[in-house]
Simulated assay, not measured.
Amino acid sequence: MFVLTIDQQGSRSSPDRIPELLDLLRSVPTILPWERSVGDEAQGVVARASDVVDAALACLRDGGWYVGIGIGEVEQPYPESSREGRGSAFVSARTAVERAKRTGDRAPVSVEGPEGSAEAEGVLALLGRHIMARSEAEWRILDLLQPDTRGTQTAVARTLGISPQAVSKAAARAAWQEELAVRPAVARLLTWADDGVESQRT
């Protein structure tokens, strides 16, 4: 199981953005819903690794968040609120978000848990760096592109009133194809680490 603890950067000198974060993550499926945990933090319990990747990268794109991903056990029966949750995944998420605050120039995301967590963190941070570096103009193009759809670059160019070559160059510059390839790889690494929780228990 995965617990994400997400902390707002610079919360003492900026408005409360937690409602904005909860709205951003509303579409990401959870076992225990996204909610404010304490002060300037939000937390959620997620079952699928692909949803963890989606949530983490959405936060990095939005900017201004420290993302901690904890892999471990969540005690059952599940409570109604993640604030009442217990288990090693919650402890790991707390450790991860504190480490995320010390990543320096790297993407502010950390993964804590069994064997495989460090590998997942490294690839996720590398992907996050590309996402954080994209310009608004690049995002306008990427948000319209449809993976594995023939003619999509031509359609996007027509919609935005630019050339297909400009769309192609923007996608290449933003490493869009690489992101599509790497997202499942990060999810597999997270799943591998999560499988290690069961191995440790047995």
Rank of each mutant, 00 (worst) to 15 (best):
A133I: 12
E138A: 14
A175Y: 10
E98F: 00
K101R: 15
A175H: 15
A125N: 06
A172V: 02
W176C: 04
L127N: 07
T152L: 03
L126R: 00
E178P: 01
D143E: 13
E119P: 00
T95N: 12
A107E: 03
L144S: 09
R173H: 06
E115I: 14
A175K: 12
V109Q: 11
G104H: 03
M132D: 06
A125S: 14
W139S: 06
S110N: 09
P147T: 07
D143T: 14
V109R: 02
V109G: 07
A181H: 07
D143K: 13
W139Q: 10
Q153P: 00
A137V: 04
E179P: 08
T95C: 00
A155K: 14
W176S: 04
A157P: 12
L126H: 08
R158W: 00
G128L: 00
A155D: 15
V167T: 09
L180D: 07
E121G: 08
S92L: 05
E136S: 15
Q146P: 01
V111I: 13
A137D: 05
G128I: 00
A137C: 10
V97W: 03
L145C: 07
Q165M: 11
A93N: 02
H130D: 07
V167M: 03
T154I: 00
A93H: 05
Q177V: 02
A155I: 09
D143P: 02
G122W: 04
R158G: 11
R134S: 12
S92T: 00
R106G: 08
L180Y: 09
E119L: 10
R150N: 05
R150D: 10
S110K: 02
E112M: 06
T154M: 07
A155P: 06
I162A: 11
D105L: 01
V111L: 10
A157N: 12
G113R: 02
P114C: 10
R102F: 01
A118F: 01
E115L: 12
A120N: 02
Q177A: 12
T149D: 00
R106I: 10
T159Q: 14
P108N: 07
T103L: 14
W139H: 05
A181R: 13
S92K: 08
L124Y: 01
L126Y: 08
A100N: 07
S110W: 02
A96N: 03
A93G: 06
G116Y: 08
M132C: 03
D148Q: 14
T95Q: 10
A157Y: 09
D143F: 00
A137M: 02
L127C: 04
L127A: 10
V111Y: 08
L126A: 13
V123A: 12
V167P: 03
S92G: 06
R94Q: 13
G122M: 05
E115G: 03
W176L: 11
L142W: 09
A170L: 03
D105Q: 13
S110C: 05
R150S: 13
A174P: 02
V111G: 03
V109F: 05
T159E: 06
T159W: 07
E179Y: 01
P114S: 04
V97N: 14
A100D: 11
L124M: 10
A171Y: 01
R140I: 03
D143Q: 13
A181D: 15
I131H: 04
V109D: 07
T103G: 07
K169M: 02
L127G: 03
R140P: 01
I141K: 04
Q146F: 06
I131Y: 01
